[in-house]
Design a protein around this nucleic acid. Structure first.
Length: 639
RNA sequence: GCCGGCGUAGCUCAGCGGCAGAGCGAGGCACUCGUAAUGCCUAGGUCGUGGGUUCAAGUCCCACCGCCGGCUCCA
């Protein structure tokens, strides 16, 4: 028998080839290990060791251990389904782990699983766990595997086997009469899994291909500790509480209605003022940084979209055409062709570059009905769009400046944590290698210089150019894609864009698309979820609500205060309804108004107001001017 | 678009073959009130739309529209 040298935590051990990792740990007196790790590779206790290796044990404290037990839970889920609906009726797809749990894609003949079935399935799973069945692992040959899974009527598994590379080991795992094709890793007994809960069931195409059958995906979450599980469930509840669709209705910000159309947003007065605040800020910041604002139409001639290539490549996402005086027109899905037309309105000199054209351009895109979601995914939205046209030697500086701009803006809205993704040249790219190299280098350099954490999505760029995407982390840790800076080597060619260089010759400029918010709609949605509706003062649709204690005695002075604040540019409302003061306070609190001013006899005497802050609580009485100055200072600081 | 669930008053929801309901909100009246809900009264519905089954349909069946959870797509 061949022998192997295994190093665990620095201790070297000589064992026979084929000895299971669990036995190795046993010899070494390592207890409670869930599995082992060699480099980044996870190995479970059931796996026979075939080569010399250095290992560290994985315990429950190690995050990798979750992956192992979640994987086993997905098998237990599969077995539970087989037990409940019949071994030959349940066809298994794939059952991987997720960031917080696991799922299994299955097809159940003659039954569709609904969320009502989940408790029963869970119960069956707990039975399997309680029995503490030993889990086995076996390596099988390709032919043997195909025969085994064909006999089991596991058509999807057979398909997977056929896709496995020659030479790769094919392993099966199972327990108590249940067998699954699986790479592992798993815990050695069904009783070793942690706390779990099945959360929901949804459809999922086999292999993610819409031309293949749709399976049912059963999702579960799982952690070692009940505490962690409950925390995760609380997170879902918290997310639900922050749902911008709910907040939007409660605070009367926006409306999306059947009568108007799916994915089309009506901005109610309070939402409109929020949007205006965002837009005014946006325009000011752009002007400060040398952008030129433009306005372009909502529709454009088909010839334009032909030249841009949208009709060839983007047509499925465009609304149907309309005919005007024998010419075909389309509602715009993008602003770029118009901005290019602005650029081309005259001969451009290198001295003008970079030219930065910006517009809050409302575009319409056909999105499949199933993907529409509140403000986050709509059919009509306003991009905070800009196109930067520059010379090659300006690219680096332009990218740097643009990225800084985006981050500065996002910081102003209270986001501090960013994740940046750079997508590089895909296989089917157009443009010269020099162009790609220059562009990709500029992107990387900009991110590195700013010291932001980033990842590279190798080959993930669009065919027409590489890009940077910025995602922001919200108050409960979720990432939202917002800003994007995207090179375009395609449109300058298609539209024959030029500038005259210092050599008096014509040159092709570089063009960069960029958005900071992404879309106004989506960004407002993200803001609402980030702040759970309690927007910072400078963004609040209503910043102050004035409440006279008595709607008769104090009304005149209350109106005076209201008028004064309004004149100072503060968004103020008077609530002199014939209601108890505490009822009106409650109402203002629920509407998340940052400051409530109570006005009674005492305040009237000294031209004071009694201030109650949403965050600070009762701040006591102060002079109207003092309060106004305090407020204006806070608004100025974007608090 | 696909799979599953769901559409009942402005909102949140109950009713699941036999007289359309509740709370909040809205309107009216009384109370004139000091930091998170004063009381009483009233109005409000082709039960998403269209078809079908039935003596009888929010309720059962079919189609469509929309919403929710996913999948897919996001030149």
């Amino acid at each position: 028998m061949e022998s192997l040298r295994i190093r665990v935590n620095g201790k070297e051990l000589q064992v026979e080839k084929g000895v299971k990792l669990g036995e190795v740990f046993g010899i070494l007196g390592i207890q409670n290990a869930v599995g082992g790790k060699s480099g980044s590779r996870l190995i479970d206790l059931l796996t026979p060791l075939q080569e010399d290796m250095e290992l560290t044990p994985v315990f429950k404290e190690d995050p990798e251990s979750l992956d192992i037990m979640r994987h086993t839970l997905s098998h237990i889920l599969a077995q539970a389904l087989k037990e409940l609906y019949g071994y030959e009726k349940v066809h298994l797809g794939v059952g991987p782990t997720t960031e917080e749990g696991f799922y299994y894609d299955v097809e159940v003949e003659g039954h569709t699983i609904s969320s009502e079935d989940l408790p029963r399935i869970e119960e069956k799973m707990r039975e399997i766990i309680a029995k503490n069945y030993p889990i086995f692992r076996k390596e099988v040959g390709r032919e043997e595997a195909i025969k085994l899974f064909s006999d089991l009527k596991e058509k999807y598994k057979v398909e997977i086997i056929n896709r496995i590379d020659e030479g790769e080991t094919i392993s099966i795992y199972g327990q108590n009469g249940f067998v699954d094709l699986c790479r592992g890793p798993h815990v050695p007994f069904t009783g070793m899994v942690g706390e779990f809960k099945l959360t929901h069931v949804a459809g999922a195409y086999w292999m993610g291909d819409s031309s293949r059958p749709m399976l049912q995906r059963i999702y579960g979450i799982a952690f070692w500790d009940k505490k962690d599980l409950e925390e995760r469930l609380k997170f879902y509840e918290e997310a639900k509480k922050r749902d911008h669709r709910r907040i939007g209705r409660e605070l009367e910000l926006f409306l999306i209605e059947d009568e108007v159309g799916a994915g089309l947003v009506l901005w109610l007065p309070k939402g409109a003022i929020l949007r205006k605040t965002l837009e005014d800020y946006w325009k000011e910041e752009h002007l400060k940084r040398g952008y030129q604002l433009v306005y372009t139409p909502h529709v454009g001639n088909a010839k334009l979209w032909q030249t841009s290539g949208h009709l060839d490549y983007y047509r499925p996402n465009m609304f149907s055409s309309m005919e005007i005086e024998g010419e075909e027109y389309f509602v715009k899905p993008m602003n770029c062709p118009f901005h290019i037309a602005v650029y081309k309105s005259k001969v451009r000199s290198y001295k003008e570059l970079p030219i930065k054209l910006a517009e809050l351009g409302t575009v319409y895109r056909y999105e499949m009905s199933g993907v529409l979601h509140g403000l986050m995914r709509v059919r009509g939205f306003t991009q905070d769009d800009a196109h930067i046209i520059c010379a090659p030697e300006q690219v680096e500086e332009v990218i740097q400046e643009t990225l800084e701009f985006a981050i500065d803006v996002l910081r102003d809205f209270g986001f501090e944590d960013f994740k940046v993704y750079i997508s590089t040249k895909p296989a089917d790219a157009i443009g010269s290698p020099q162009q790609w190299e220059l562009a990709e280098k500029a992107l990387k350099k900009a991110v590195e210089r700013m010291g932001i954490e980033y990842e590279i999505d190798e080959g993930g760029g669009a065919f027409y150019g590489p890009k940077i995407d910025v995602k922001i982390r919200d108050a409960i840790g979720r990432l939202w894609q917002c800003s994007t800076i995207q090179f375009d080597f395609n449109l300058p060619e298609r539209f024959d864009m030029e500038y005259v260089g210092s050599d008096n010759r014509r040159h092709r400029p570089y063009m960069i698309h960029r958005a900071i918010f992404g879309s106004i709609e989506r960004f407002v949605g993200v803001l609402l979820e980030h702040y759970a509706g309690l927007l910072p003062l400078w963004l609040s649709p209503v910043q102050v609500r004035v409440l006279p204690v008595s709607s008769e005695k104090h009304l005149t002075y209350a109106r005076e205060v209201e008028g004064y604040l309004r004149e100072k540019g503060i968004r103020v409302e008077l609530d002199a309804r014939d209601e108890r003061l505490s009822a009106r306070i409650r109402d203002a609190e629920l509407q998340k108004v940052p400051y409530i001013l109570v006005i009674g006899d005492k305040e009237m005497e000294g031209k004071h107001v009694s201030v109650r802050g949403k965050k600070e609580g009762n701040l006591g009485s102060m002079a109207v001017e003092a309060f106004t100055n305090l407020l204006l200072e806070k608004i100025g600081k974007k608090e």
